[in-house]
Design a protein around this nucleic acid. Structure first.
Lengths: 104, 104
DNA sequence: CAAACAAATAAGTCTATGCTTATCTGTTGG
DNA sequence: CCAACAGATAAGCATAGACTTATTTGTTTG
């Protein structure tokens, strides 16, 4: 329900990069950090923000933690955006195409 | 193209309130401020952020400035969100309903 | 033209955020 | 069991953000 927290979490490019990496499958913190030029604590803190915003879930597996996108996490802002649907004249066709793709 | 700037602009509840007020029609700065407990400069600064993010447009009319939602402004983050469509199992039906409503 | 008005800008303050290094907690494998 | 590892937490710093009051810019109207 707290859109502010979600938007704030998404406002940081490093956190969006983490999320997008999770789109291709679950990862642990070390894997999420690969190729990024930030310290281990920095990633850990970003992960905490994403988790606080409900955007990711975590599951401890041994001494690793597997992170994954939380499917429900983005819903509040998707809902928020649908209020602006009357202002999406140009994109509406593309969105419909996406939805048709999903039907198949 | 700069999603960070858009997400950051939307992260503030006062700015979202301004945007939502504009959903019901164009307003000037004084009208946008009505009912909000912030100073005139604060609203002016919020408007500047929204405009910088491409979310609103402005048109000077005499000594007033009429602000309006920029229809194209939210597209970058709508596009960004569609990358997560595979993770929207629960919301997809609602979204389809919205789109059907638009067809009529 | 002067007073009133709409909005922006300036400048200062306070808090939040993102980063670092150092340290701590928990887990595993030799 | 202990050394190495995965990750979180602590503490400190620098910058960004949201707000205020005071002032400025531009426009209108009596």
């Amino acid at each position: 329900m707290d859109e502010s927290e979600i938007f704030r979490a998404l406002a940081d490019p490093t956190r969006r990069a983490v999320l997008e990496r999770l789109l291709t499958g679950e990862r642990n913190a070390t894997e999420l950090r690969e190729g990024m030029s930030v310290s281990q604590p920095a990633i850990s803190q970003h992960i905490a923000v994403l988790r606080g915003a409900g955007l990711i879930t975590e599951q401890r597996v041994g001494r690793h933690v597997r992170y994954a996108v939380n499917p429900e996490g983005l819903q509040p802002i998707v809902d928020w955006l649908t209020r602006y649907r009357a202002f999406w004249p140009a994109r509406i066709e593309r969105l419909k195409t996406h939805l048709k793709d999903m039907d198949q």
